[in-house]
Write a protein that binds this DNA or RNA. Structure first.
Length: 242
DNA sequence: AACTACCTCAACCGCGATAGC
DNA sequence: AGCTATCGCGGTTGAGGTAGT
């Protein structure tokens, strides 16, 4: 049973408490959180220590705004994992499950509320797939002279090459890939083999092909695809996040 | 400048899973 | 097998900051 005592301190951590916890972890490593707190005289529960370390003190944590590429990953991964924030956070280097959870609550749920629809409704999934995610994807463009995002609706196995109802959204972004972002970009660029994404051919009516292409100053051509449906975004055959 | 509304995010809680005795 | 301690997760809260009026 987690130790509950009147002596346990709650609320915001002081710099002194932080340094005590860091010192303790440097000596004994993570785990046995109650003991860690005790040996350096921290009047905090093990639970509180663990949370402070994972969400704030860990040296590899990223601070600041969730970038568009991180937002896109969160949306994609939420289709697959649902509210399993820690699972989603595993794929966002330097972000904690709390960061992901906070983003979802403050941004995504807010959008759903503004649209007067349930977060898990078909209507909101369509909004994510056809508006929000394409707009985020359009910001994922590496240094390039031109680029375009093509959204093809009403996909079926028979019209894969006919591309009806093509909308072209032009966009450009001069400085996308930074040192810190490169890892995330590597994840996104794996969509170039987007045909690997499995899907249910028996119900293809709302399947969508997201095709993102660009070329740089040297005329090197980039093409990234992924398939998605409003019902699900199944990435089962991708080993990217497994 | 003062007030209010909104936003962000750190921190808490409850609960289930797991490990160890 | 049953009990206790610990861990980890998801849901929620609220303090502090910021933007708008």
């Amino acid at each position: 049973m987690e130790q509950v005592s009147m002596e346990m301190k709650k609320g915001p951590w002081s710099p002194d408490e932080d340094s005590k916890l860091i010192h303790s972890i440097s000596l004994f490593g993570q785990g046995r959180w109650n003991s860690l707190a005790h040996v350096v005289g921290l009047k905090r529960s093990g639970k509180s220590c663990r949370l402070r370390w994972l969400n704030y003190l860990q040296p590899n944590l990223r601070r600041g705004k969730i970038t568009p590429q991180e937002q896109l990953l969160i949306l994609l991964l939420h289709f697959r994992f649902g509210n399993r924030w820690s699972k989603i956070a595993e794929n966002l280097p330097g972000r904690s499950d709390n960061d992901v959870k906070n983003y979802w609550r403050t941004k995504v749920q807010k959008h759903a509320k503004e649209l007067h629809c349930e977060i898990n409704s078909q209507q909101f999934r369509h909004f994510l797939l056809y508006q929000w995610m394409p707009s985020l994807l359009a910001q994922q463009i590496p240094t390039s002279s031109s680029s375009e995002l093509i959204v093809t609706e009403n996909y079926s196995p028979n019209n894969i090459n006919t591309c009806p109802n093509v909308n072209v959204i032009s966009s450009s972004m001069d400085s996308f890939v930074t040192e810190d972002d490169s890892n995330i970009w590597n994840n996104l660029s794996s969509f170039e083999d987007g045909i690997n994404i499995s899907h249910d051919f028996s119900t293809p009516s709302d399947m969508t092909l997201y095709n993102y292409s660009s070329h740089d100053e040297d005329d090197q051509y980039y093409c990234h695809n992924y398939w998605a449906s409003a019902e699900m975004l199944s990435l089962d055959e991708m080993d990217l996040w497994l």
